[in-house]
Every structure is written in C-alpha cells, then in structure tokens.
C-alpha cells in the first residue's frame, strides 16, 4: 500500500515537473509548480520529516508561489490587440542542451543513489534518541542548542534580504 502511495506522489512530481519545463505558458508552469511542491511535501511526510513538509507547504506554496504569480501580474505586453490571446509565453528555450544536462545529472545522481548504503550511515550526529511523535521537537532542541549560531546568523541573512528587496523594489520617488 505504502509503495503505491509513494509511486503515486512520485508520478505526480515527475509529471508536473515535466509540465513546468515543457509548457511555454508561464502561468501554466507556475500552477504546475504548485503541484510539484505539494508532491514533494508528501514525500517529506513519507520520509518522516513532518516539520520540513509543513515548512515546504507554508513557504513554497504559500509564499514563493504567490510571489511568482505576482511576478506574472507585474509584466505586461506593450502592443497587444484586445482580441489576442492573453498568454505569456517564454521565448527562451534551449531544448537540446537542457535535455543533455538534465540527462547527465540524472545519470550521475541515479548512479550515486543506487549505490548508496543509507542504512549504514553514521548516526552519531543525530543527538539524543528521545523519541517523540513529531520531528518538530527534535528540530527545536537542535536549533536552540547545537545550531544556535547558524540560527542567529540566518536572522542577519533575512535582514540583508529584507533591506535589499526594500531598496531594490521601492520606486524611485519614495526613496527618501
């Protein structure tokens, strides 16, 4: 049963990702990406990483994708007749090299992962074996004790991004 569910989500991700690449319409690609993100979060659930799954939905589906669609809304074509179709089509596509690189990367990763011994991975870094129902607790303890410096520094990273986006995206008149 679990294998079938896995296969279902795997196919969902693969097909929607292919649609993202293949569709020339940017909006179709964006909505197909939504399905990809949802499928990936389902895979996270199956891997036992429920916190990452929720993060994936909250940030990618709830945030990044909204940004993408906003980006589509911000564009406009200058000289378009009212009766034309209202699609935004990408003009840049490089099928040959794209497929070549994707195939190369796939072969490499497939070879890597098929030979990997995931059961034999050293587990000394996973900290205490206190088993809890959800991984959120473990993540929280690790974040606040061992990885506290990266956590605080991430605050600086977010602040730089905040200042930068506010500076770059603010219109010229309201600069000062």
């Amino acid at each position: 049963m679990i294998n079938f569910i896995f296969l279902f989500f795997f196919l969902l991700i693969a097909i929607s990702a292919i649609v993202v690449l293949w569709s020339r319409n940017v909006l179709y690609s964006a909505f197909s990406l939504l399905v990809t993100f949802l499928g990936i979060s389902a895979l996270y659930v199956m891997a036992g990483a429920d916190f990452v799954a929720v993060t994936q939905i909250l940030i990618y589906v709830g945030g990044i994708l909204v940004l993408l669609i906003f980006g589509v809304m911000l564009t406009n074509k200058g000289d378009r007749k009212t009766d034309d179709k209202n699609d935004i089509l990408t003009e840049s596509r490089n099928r040959f090299w794209g497929i070549l690189v994707a195939m190369g990367l796939f072969t490499l990763l497939f070879y890597t992962f098929s030979g990997a011994d995931f059961a034999g991975i050293h587990r000394q870094n996973f900290g205490d074996n206190e088993q809890s129902l959800s991984s959120v607790k473990g993540v929280g303890v690790q974040l606040m004790t061992e990885f506290v410096l990266p956590f605080e520094i991430t605050g600086i990273l977010l602040m730089v991004a905040l200042i930068g986006s506010a500076y770059l995206a603010s219109s010229r008149k309201s600069d000062d």
């Binding site: 916190f51 993060t55 909250l58 940030i59 709830g62 945030g63 990044i64 909204v66 940004l67 906003f70 980006g71 809304m73 911000l74 959800s134 959120v136 607790k137 993540v139 929280g140 303890v141 974040l143 606040m144 956590f151 991430t154 605050g155 977010l158 991004a161 905040l162 986006s165 506010a166 995206a169 603010s170």
Partner: peptide
Amino acid sequence: YFLVAILFVLFDVEVIFMYPWAVN
C-alpha cells in the same frame, strides 16, 4: 504589491523558525 509579498515571505520564514522553538 510585490514588495508586500516579498516582506510576507521573509516574515513567513521567520515564523517558521519560531514554531519548533514554541513547541519546546
């Protein structure tokens, strides 16, 4: 609108970090 969306995503990420903290 776009700027507001960017700010939303940034603070969204911040809130995500608070969640595992709050649980503990």
